[in-house]
Structure formats: C-alpha cells, structure tokens
Simulated scan of single mutants.
Amino acid sequence: MTISIGTSSHILACSCSSSSLLNYSTNRTAFGTSGKWGSGSGHFKTAIKAQQRPTWLPGLDPPSYLDGTLAGDFGFDPLGLGEDPESLKWYVQAELVHARFAMAGVAGILFTDLLRVTGISDLPVWYEAGATKFGFASTRTLFIIQLLLMGFAETKRYMDFTNPGSQAKEGSFFGLEAALEGLEPGYPGGPLLNPLGLAKDIKNAHEWKLKEIKNGRLAMVAMLGIFVQANVTHVGPIDNLVRHLSNPWHETIIQTLSGSGS
C-alpha cells in the first residue's frame, strides 16, 4: 500500500503494509510524529492508494473478470469478449495457438528468406512458396497430408480443451501418452514437446507462460507487418532490411508508403 503525506513544505512518501498502518494508528509515533492520524499542526494531508497491477493503459481499471491470474493479463478487453467465463477460456486457448503459429511463421519466413537472399539455397519468396511445385510429391498430396496431420493435432487439442487431461490417459495416443504429459489444456509437455524440461510444473510456471505469450503477441504483430510489407514492396523482409540498411535515412517506411501511393 502506498502512502504519501504532504505538508506545505515537503512531501514524504513510503510503501508499507496494512500492519504498519495499524501500528501507526496504535502507537501514534510513526514517521517521528505525534498526535492523531490525519491531523496535526502541519495540516497533514494523507492519500492512501492500493497498489494496482500493471495494465495496458496506465491508470485504467481492468474488468472484474480479468483479475490478473491469466498469463499476460493486463486488463485489455475493450470489446468485453471475455465476460462469459467459458468464452474467456476458449479465447485464451485461441490466442495461445495463434501466438505459437505466429512465432513459428516469423522464424520460418526470416530463416528461409535469409537463405534465399544470401544465395545459400534457391528458395522461393515466402508468399510464393504455396504455389511451388515439388518433385517428391504433388500439391494435392501435400495438401492432404497437411490436412490429416493438422486435423489430427487440432482434434486432440479440442478434446483436451473440452475434457482436460483426457488425452494424457493411457491408450489415448498409441501408447505415447507418457511422452506428451499433457497436464493442462494448451500446455502439453514431456520429452517430445518439452525436451529441455523448462516448465515441468506447468501449474506454477507463471514466468514461462508470461514470456511465451509476450513473445507470441510480438510475433503476431511482426507477422502482420510482414504481410503489409509484402503487399506494399512485393519483396521479402530480408530484402527490405538490406535496402533500409543501405540508405537508412531515405529508405524508410515513410518513403516506402509515400512512394506506393504515387
């Protein structure tokens, strides 16, 4: 709890607990003063304010249903989408999945674009990769394989969301359940999906959850930037970076956008 005491000549501020306030009112000697709390010859003015958790907009009162227990909860819900508890659970899982896809997408785009620009590999630019013909399999075959694999993974994820822990039961995944150890919806573990064992106790891994969702949100913003950049410049992100570094004062987003409109 934050306490500030101001007089006509100075302001004294400190942080203390409610127990120290009790001691003050009991002993009436805190801060080297005497007399009753909130009064005295110096006309003390007191302001007591409970310390608030960080919010996306400083000074904003977060909605009551966002109590700070969720990873990355900074009270941001201007449309009130999370008022319903069941909907909030689904939105949390949806954001987590989109964040992970965005992190994988940004890493894949930057890595392959770097290989292409440096000439190490003859790869297509990322937004043309889907139209590329591969010799080892047809486009239809690759699409069907992706549909089956993604459909299987998403079905398992949805089943674990509706019935938490059901996909970690023996016999639910061809005998590989112990290798996954899905102990919480959205956070499968085990040697396959958590080989370094960074968050073995997922219930108390608040710091790791916060880091993941922060990086995931940053990746989603980066992915949006890559989409816009490709639509405006028609080249990959590494090409844009090289162009900017070659002439940083004149090759900027302002010149790029102004040139695209002319």
Score class of each variant (00 low, 15 high):
Thr155Tyr: 09
Gly119Val: 04
Pro185Tyr: 02
Gly165Thr: 01
Val117Leu: 01
Thr7Lys: 04
Gly189Ser: 14
Ser260Met: 01
Ser19His: 14
Thr55Val: 04
Met150Trp: 11
Thr139Ala: 15
Phe76Asp: 07
Ser41Ile: 12
Glu170Trp: 13
Ser20Asn: 12
Asn240Lys: 08
Gly68Cys: 10
Gly197Phe: 00
Phe44Pro: 09
Pro78Thr: 04
Tyr187Met: 08
Trp56Glu: 01
Phe152Tyr: 10
Arg28Asp: 08
Asn231Trp: 15
Ser9Lys: 14
Leu176Met: 10
Gly59Val: 00
Trp90Ala: 07
Val92Cys: 06
Ser64Leu: 05
Gly186Thr: 05
Leu192Met: 06
Pro78His: 03
Gln51Gly: 02
Pro63Leu: 05
Ser64Ile: 00
Trp249Lys: 12
Phe31His: 08
Leu66Met: 08
Ala131Leu: 12
Gly135Glu: 06
Gly216Phe: 06
His250Ser: 15
Ser25Asn: 13
Thr2His: 11
Ala230Asp: 01
Ser4Glu: 10
Leu110Gln: 02
Ser138Pro: 04
Glu212Ser: 12
Gly259His: 13
Gly182Met: 04
Gly175Ser: 04
Ile5Val: 10
Phe227Gln: 08
Phe143Tyr: 09
Gly38Trp: 05
Pro188Phe: 00
Leu70Pro: 07
Gln229Asn: 13
Asn215Phe: 14
Lys49Ile: 10
Ser258Asp: 09
Arg157Gln: 06
Gly6Pro: 00
Gly151Pro: 09
Ile11Glu: 11
Ala102Arg: 04
Ile11Asp: 05
Arg100Asn: 11
His10Cys: 06
Ser262Leu: 14
Gly40Tyr: 12
Lys169Gly: 02
Thr162Asp: 03
Leu21Tyr: 06
Gln255Met: 03
Gly82Asn: 01
Ala50Thr: 09
Asn194Ala: 07
Gly216Glu: 00
Asp77Ala: 03
Phe44Glu: 14
Thr155Val: 13
Thr55Ile: 05
Ala129Leu: 02
Met159Gln: 05
Leu114Ile: 10
Gly190Tyr: 05
Lys89Trp: 05
Leu198Glu: 09
Asp113Thr: 03
Leu142Ala: 02
Thr55Cys: 02
Leu245Asn: 08
Gln51Tyr: 07
Pro191Leu: 01
Arg217His: 10
Phe174Glu: 07
Glu95His: 11
Glu128Ala: 06
Ser258Val: 06
Ala199Leu: 13
Ser41His: 06
Asp61Thr: 14
